[in-house]
């Protein structure tokens, strides 16, 4: 009953079987390797490569998208800052200009006022001067009228002479 268990007994252990199975195994390995193993390992490798490539490219795209989003956010933030800067600059400019205009106007006004005063003064002086002359002429005329009325021919003659004499000097 237990002859099976006696490994190497003449009856139980046929070297031929061992050789046969060893050969079978080797041939099987060769055939399986050829028809199934090589294609499958190759395919598994390809798939692994593809998956890792896909993951890499996905990572890449994600990074790119993030970068882009960040850039846009930055641009947005910058534009806010720029806009407020522009507004504040414009306000500043406006303020400056207003002040400039006011000060210009003030200086112009004072210049005009000065000029006007000068002119008035001049006019006044001129007027005074002409009045003086007029008064002199008038007084002379009046005087001459008065004198003419009361002067005799004799007196007139001496007066004219005196004038002429005066002219001659």
């Amino acid at each position: 009953m237990f002859t099976h268990l006696i490994v190497g007994s003449a009856q139980g252990f046929n070297v031929g079987d061992a050789v046969f199975f060893a050969l079978c195994f080797l041939i099987l390995m060769a055939i399986i390797g050829k028809i199934a193993w090589d294609p499958i390992t190759k395919m598994l490798e390809e798939r692994a490569n593809k998956i890792s490539n896909d993951i890499d490219s996905a990572e890449d795209s994600r990074n790119k998208a993030e970068k882009l989003a960040k850039e846009r956010q930055d641009a947005l933030n910058n534009s806010h800052a720029e806009a407020s800067e522009i507004v504040s600059k414009a306000t500043q400019d406006g303020k400056e200009r207003r002040e400039n205009i006011i000060s210009d106007a003030k200086s112009d006004a004072s210049l005009l006022k000065e000029n006007a005063q000068k002119d008035i003064e001049q006019e006044r002086k001129d007027a005074l001067a002409s009045t003086k002359n007029d008064v002199a002429d008038l007084s002379i005329e009046i005087a001459s009228k008065i004198i003419k009325k009361e002067l005799s021919a004799e007196d007139q003659k001496t007066l004219i002479d005196s004038y002429i004499k005066g002219l001659g000097d």
Binding site: G16, D17, F20, C24, A36
Partner: peptide, 27 residues
């Protein structure tokens, strides 16, 4: 010059054939 057990040889060939057939079919 080697002794072979017929049962083992036949069974072995059957296993061989099943395995090859299966793997061939699946691959």
């Amino acid at each position: 010059g080697l002794t072979f057990n017929t049962a083992n040889i036949i069974s072995g060939l059957i296993v061989f054939a099943i395995l090859i057939g299966l793997v061939f079919f699946l691959s």
